[in-house]
Design a protein around this nucleic acid. Sequence first.
DNA 1: TTGAAAGCGATACCAT
DNA 2: ATGGTATCGCTTTCAA
Lengths: 356, 356
Amino acid sequence: MQRKATAQDVAKLAGVSRSAVSLVLNGHGDGNIASESQERIRQAAKELNYKPNAVALSLRNQRTSVIGIVSDRVISGPVDGNIIAGADAVARTQGFVTLGLDTELDEQRDVSAVETLLDRHVDALMYVTVGLRELKVPAGMEKAPSILANCFDSRGPGHVGNVLPDEVWGGAEALRHVLAHGHRRLAFLTGPLTHPASQRRLAGYREAMAEAGLPFPEDAVLPTGWDITDGFAAAGAALSVPADERPTALLCANDRCAVGAVLAARGLGLQVPGDVSIVGYDDEERIADTMVPALSTMALPLREIGAAAMTRLLSAIPRVARKASKHLPPDRSVLEGEQLIRGRFVDRGSLGPAPA
Amino acid sequence: MQRKATAQDVAKLAGVSRSAVSLVLNGHGDGNIASESQERIRQAAKELNYKPNAVALSLRNQRTSVIGIVSDRVISGPVDGNIIAGADAVARTQGFVTLGLDTELDEQRDVSAVETLLDRHVDALMYVTVGLRELKVPAGMEKAPSILANCFDSRGPGHVGNVLPDEVWGGAEALRHVLAHGHRRLAFLTGPLTHPASQRRLAGYREAMAEAGLPFPEDAVLPTGWDITDGFAAAGAALSVPADERPTALLCANDRCAVGAVLAARGLGLQVPGDVSIVGYDDEERIADTMVPALSTMALPLREIGAAAMTRLLSAIPRVARKASKHLPPDRSVLEGEQLIRGRFVDRGSLGPAPA
DNA sequence: TTGAAAGCGATACCAT
DNA sequence: ATGGTATCGCTTTCAA
């Protein structure tokens, strides 16, 4: 690991001063440096494979080009990291890098994570959660431009801005597809009704029923959990009734819940989607697409959420200040407010026409 | 976001020079600074909530205390991030932070990821893969102390060292549990036989059979894929035979494969584990533990792999050099060789006694 | 016992 | 047009 070339080395090779090297390589050469010298400098830089030292630049510019990401369990957990992937992709195109810290759901750790990130002088902060939820924003986040992805500030709007999936629309859209297949006897395996995603989707279900001019079947709402077992239990109960009362379509809280529902249906000797259609939510990779039958499901726009959040965040970071001593204040206006992103319905086969 | 306190500020408040502050706060105060001044300095530091600027430290010490992690799809994908969590936990206890970059399986991107990390002067590099596999180590990794987690150098041993799950032992151990439940008619849904994990586990199966003094049933080896559909298809075929030829236990390539197997069994009207026992692999969170029935499975020691890899990596990084100009060479000996980590069998219910 | 000064690497001002 | 110099914040040597 030989030492890397510095601006000094380039200057020596080109027979000029460090300052000349700096000016030329940053595009401020014209009008300052003889074009002949410029060429020599560029030559030398290429020859030595010179790249400015990022650490020195950070110190000098008071900007690290690092975005800190705190997450509850996105990195460490078995969950889809596409929010972070989407955020990272956007960051990368602008020369930024993301530094992710997981709290592994330890409430204590999110403050210290923010602190660690701030100590390392990240240029901005993003908080990402596994599921849509309210977030008690950790102390310290206000010290840098910040945004929330998949969660919302517990202090209400007007504080830290955020990006969320449009769950109301998602619920409505899923139900529209189900209704379009002719289903009228439904069951909603909603997940816990205390959960914001459940509540919003339920609101969406009501919207879609109203749109279709149908009364909303209150007793079709079956609160569940999010796991396979939960779907299994709820679907098992819902389907264990005489055939002419049995729901012909189950709208599940997520894809794992839908897997449980399929297992229950099979256990009762029912065909999916022949006897009962089952619709998931999330479009979980390696589950929804490879389930038997493959799941029709409402895809969560995770990548888009991450990308949108990062886009807003970066636009709030002042571009390289002309004078290091004169910090432009971050433009926080783009960081205000809540942005909703719509997913899309993926039709794969577990949703079929309502049986006659 | 007011400017943070610097050593200068502390010095002024304590009425001493910057150097005194530095000496005291780094423990080199005794024998150099009057203990009375020391106290004043510590007071002032606390009062101003002084913390040395990490960026300046990095520049000065030529060490960033950042470990770069390149992964193929661990961060962005829907897979268990516990290798990274384990690595990060170890790093954190020693004041390091991990900077993760996903290539999202794009071969082009791993070289540029290493480059990005090196440009940011990470102190060491780790490459983490989703599944056990051979890795064409990207150019540039040799420029920093490096280690591989869950993968092995395609150039063979003696190059970049690594940490792997002990798959041979894992296969053997899983089979030992199955045999202990009295099963003798078996089927091995192995995953693709070209895959190193499949091959090693198969070797383990052979070992365990030999241990038990039983001949290895070559025709019980059923190569599959890794998905639900694959398990469904293979199990469907294996179980669609007369009851007295039917395998009483299925050892699956992973938990999702096992889910497919359960679906197939249920479709054939078979009880799990009453008629057929089904064993998974991986102990995938939110699948194995919440499946119906909950899966007995061989847990992959992901966290331990990450922790072991990071431990070796950190021990190869020279401690803070006394003199910034005099770099101690990294101690690469700990980075050589392959380290195998054993998982453990988790018995949850999908494995039962062999039917009479 | 203390403080001044030299870097670490890069940039932007201000003289020349 | 060019190069010297201060600065970012910190550590460490050396001189007082």
